[in-house]
């Protein structure tokens, strides 16, 4: 034995879990939704997603390498996720320069100015999307009709379900269409079924726990369900709310972002219910037809506070005798 012994404090074994493994699992879970987008929007989906990923990874590399002068860790996969989620949150017809601007904002401002992965307060993809929505409301809400249903392509634009729900109830697609994903909307928000498949994968791989998505979805269903009991119009239909807009994408992939969500189970439940509540409130009574991203962004800001007040259940604290 020529080598010197290695000495370190215990434990001496590791689970082998890494940041990469978790990030790539999220990417795998996004594949079904991406396939649906590919089917619905054909090449456009691929182009937008590829460009967004390229922009996000590229900006991260350039900023870390040349401005922060550190060793970039783009392989950890977090920038790729931001790119994919950003692409999933925009309409297919979005001009490339707007997409680039959104990526720059998401990575450069929201993520890296706070210190990079692990230190950002807001989810970069959500913040990027909201930045674009506020800056370019026209382009961000010009939805290309799905190529599978429309006779002509890109030029035709149509309203999203939530837009229709609020402003023109007669143009609503059926619930089944919404579940499978043939209604107009952002790239990744199409198919509820595909997104749920992703959720199952994430739960199976133990990347996330059920607390955040379930509490969001349950709150939305309960809240709208109660309203529907008193006034059964489509505007309050719980299933329409569950299946439409970015709710599934947000609840499964954006609200569950490790960095910007609470640490404890109790905190997660509070965080999820608040997101669900704010989402419905914005949808029903706000100026925007969709409120998921605002709700998540708002609750991101509350996460440190939630963490502060929801300490985990300590051993011996609750059960003292028997």
């Amino acid at each position: 034995m020529e080598n010197k012994l290695i000495v370190s404090p215990s434990p001496h074994v590791h689970s082998g879990d890494t940041i990469q493994k978790n990030m790539y699992a999220v990417l795998i879970a996004l594949i079904p939704a991406f396939l649906v987008a590919l089917y619905v929007f054909r090449l456009d989906a691929l182009i937008i997603t590829a460009l967004a990923v390229l922009f996000c990874v590229g900006f991260e590399y350039l900023i870390v390498r040349f401005i922060l002068k550190k060793e970039p860790s783009i392989l950890d996969g977090s920038a790729i996720i931001t790119g994919v989620l950003l692409a999933f949150n925009v309409p297919t017809g979005l001009p490339v320069w707007i997409l680039a601007l959104g990526s720059l904002f998401a990575i450069g401002v929201v993520k890296l100015t706070f210190g990079g992965l692990g230190n950002n307060i807001f989810n970069p993809a959500i913040a990027g999307r909201i930045f674009l929505l506020i800056s370019f409301p026209a382009q961000m809400t010009t939805w290309a009709a799905p190529e599978t249903t429309a006779a002509t392509t890109d030029a035709v634009s149509s309203a999203t379900v939530l837009g229709a729900l609020k402003f023109a109830p007669e143009t609503m697609p059926s619930l089944m269409e919404m579940f499978l994903g043939t209604e107009p909307g952002s790239l990744g928000e199409m198919s509820v079924a595909a997104l749920l498949l992703g959720l199952i994968y994430l739960l199976w791989k133990r990347v996330i726990t059920w607390h955040i998505p379930v509490s969001i979805l349950a709150t939305v269903a309960l809240f709208t369900g109660l309203l529907y009991l008193f006034n059964p119009v489509p505007l309050y239909h719980p299933l329409i709310h569950l299946f439409s807009g970015g709710l599934m994408l947000g609840a499964i992939f954006m609200a569950t972002d490790y960095v910007t969500s609470p640490l404890t189970k109790r905190g997660m439940l509070i965080y999820g219910s608040a997101i669900g509540f704010i989402t419905v409130a914005i949808r029903l009574w706000g100026a925007y037809p969709e409120g998921v991203s605002f709700a998540i962004l708002l609750m991101n800001a509350f996460t440190p506070l939630i963490n502060n007040y929801t300490t985990p259940k300590r051993f011996g604290e609750v059960v003292k005798h028997g």
């Binding site: 290695i6 001496h12 860790s73 990079g116 692990g118 490790y258 960095v259 910007t260 609470p262 404890t264």
Partner: peptide, 13 residues
């Protein structure tokens, strides 16, 4: 035996 380099906490909980 060797530990891997420490990264920033991603707050996964």
């Amino acid at each position: 035996a060797k530990r891997k380099a420490m990264k920033d906490c991603i707050r996964c909980g």
